[in-house]
Design a protein around this nucleic acid. Structure first.
Lengths: 329, 329
DNA sequence: ATGAAAGCGCTAACAA
DNA sequence: TTGTTAGCGCTTTCAT
């Protein structure tokens, strides 16, 4: 067992409250006393029990983070960002992976809610009514999704799509296909919305191939539709799917970028390593994590600060080998 | 704010102690009273405050998990396994990513130690003295590493290497190269040890190419040495490096598996999706996570149960397209 | 079987 | 500036 505040108090020859103050509100205690206390604490290897502190302050110093599937390469970066920022603020983070099982989520959050000051929900497919229920339990911040008045951090999908379309257009493409992710995902809808706007503004013809699982296999499955559609370029919901696309296109003998240009979204590590390397709309995922923590902590300090309640992170097209000049049909 | 035990007590017309008993030790309370209490709790949406409970029981119901780098595809699976098993046991898990910064680790663990019942350390490169210091702070279980008497979960690297060598030998290979990971990593040493044993037992000539960063670039960097060495087969420390190898070999015009057979270790998702698909020694990472939790919980209940203090998980060679019959030199 | 009371480690009034 | 007191929500003696 570790030293308690009382032991430190005795060691320093002061009362427990003085120790508490010396540690939490240093300027409310005499400099020399504080020195003595700090030294005693050091000597005993004392660190306050956060649970006990939380019991009285009502704040735990903990954060909760909920993700649907950690093996999806999008999420680890977000988690890292959250981690890093939380640690800087001396917060610890509870992580829960719902395993793509939205049903588990509510129970999970209930359990977590007691132990955290706030929750970061990074879960594009949770049903809206469930989210609403969650807000009753704790302070919530959402990543990669907007819902009602809940503070959120999202990516500038519209601008990303605009960049992608501009790039394709500059390469001479006139027809582009969209390989969508899950129908229920907020970012699928946001991205296709941005894409529609961008392509119509640019006078590009858009072929929406439909919804596919957000995995490699989803991209594989979409590839044949793409080929049949006769487009010269395609944008996929995420990089993993784009890699699936690349794989199947190669198997079909369709050369990238000679015959078809391919663009992904996300900039996962693997996208730079495929051949051809994948042109992609890069998302600052760790920044999103950091921003979410930032937002949450601000919210906890001043619950009524409505400003900055949604933060939009920039996206950046990364041009690599999978896009090239349009073939002359 | 959530309902407290006292409110439930009032609602049920009993004392707080009775509520506590009805929830924690149901058979110590009259069946009908218990019914009444449970109903009241349900009605109020009551859930015990774990921090308060922990304050008195000394157990938090929380687990800590420390990983060096979540963007390394090895770790998310382990984390998922830990998560799943922990949740089954009604434990919540704190996750900390040390960002490959061993120095941060000790501080992190100190902070975490107060809030958890035990810690799972999944960090192959932490210095030994630091680990020793950590054991003073909390109950520790290690994954993918052995150290002293600390309970650990590891993979059967030796058997995995044996399988890999047997496979290559059956394909007619006589010379195999090893592309090692970080010098300081326990599993690098364990794997090369297993490989030495396996190859000498099989009468295979082993060329150790040295130590490389455990990333794609590490594999890329090693490729030219491999080509120059004249081996017909190569085993890499992990799949990510093997993919780097594949990439550079292709750039050099060396055909896989025609000219060189390549084997990875880990079976990350991407390994099945490369072309050629990567033959790899599969590690049951989520099982490792589950086993670690299992071990930890057992340890917490019966601290002196030395049996099962180290668990070794089986490995399984997955033969895919990157290995083939040895070229006739 | 149940209730009253004490106390886990800490902070926040309130006094001094 | 410091100490005393009370109490956060819960469990656990100890009575009854």
């Amino acid at each position: 067992m570790r030293a308690t505040i009382r032991e430190v108090a005795r060691e320093a020859g002061v009362s427990a409250s003085t120790v508490s103050r010396a540690l939490s509100t240093p300027d409310m205690v005499n400099a020399t006393t504080r020195e003595r206390v700090l030294r005693a604490a050091e000597r005993l290897g004392y660190a306050p029990n956060r649970a006990a502190r939380g019991l009285i302050t009502g704040r735990t110093g903990n954060l909760g983070l909920i993700v649907p599937d950690l093996t999806n390469p999008f999420f680890p970066s977000v988690v890292k960002g959250v981690q890093a920022k939380a640690r800087e603020a001396d917060y610890a983070v509870f992580l829960a992976d719902t395993d793509e099982d939205p049903a588990a989520e509510v129970g999970l959050v209930r359990a977590l809610a007691k132990q955290v000051d706030g929750l970061i929900l990074c879960s594009p497919r949770t049903r809206e009514e469930e989210i609403r229920e969650l807000t009753a339990h704790t302070t919530l911040v959402m990543v990669n999704r907007r819902f009602g008045t809940i503070p959120s951090v999202v990516f500038g999908n519209a601008d990303g799509m605009r960049q992608a379309i501009a790039h394709l257009q500059a390469l001479g493409h006139r027809r582009v296909a969209w390989v969508g992710g899950p129908r229920t995902s907020w970012s699928t809808r946001d991205r296709v919305r941005g894409l529609r706007a961008a392509s119509s503004a640019a006078g590009m013809e858009l072929f929406v191939a439909g919804h596919f699982p957000p995995y490699f296999e989803g991209g594989v499955a979409a590839a044949d539709l793409i080929i049949a559609s006769g487009v010269t370029s395609v944008i996929a919901y995420n990089d993993v799917m784009a890699l699936g696309l690349l794989s199947r296109l190669r198997d079909r003998g369709v050369d990238v970028p000679q015959d078809i240009s391919v663009i992904g979204i996300d900039d996962i590590q693997m996208s730079a390593m495929s051949s051809p390397a994948l042109t992609t709309v890069s998302l600052a995922k760790d920044q999103a994590g950091r921003a979410a923590v930032d937002l949450l902590l601000t919210l906890l300090l001043q619950p009524d600060s409505v400003r900055n309640t949604r933060r939009e992170l920039p996206t950046q097209l990364l041009v690599r080998g999978s896009t090239g000049v349009a073939r002359t049909t």
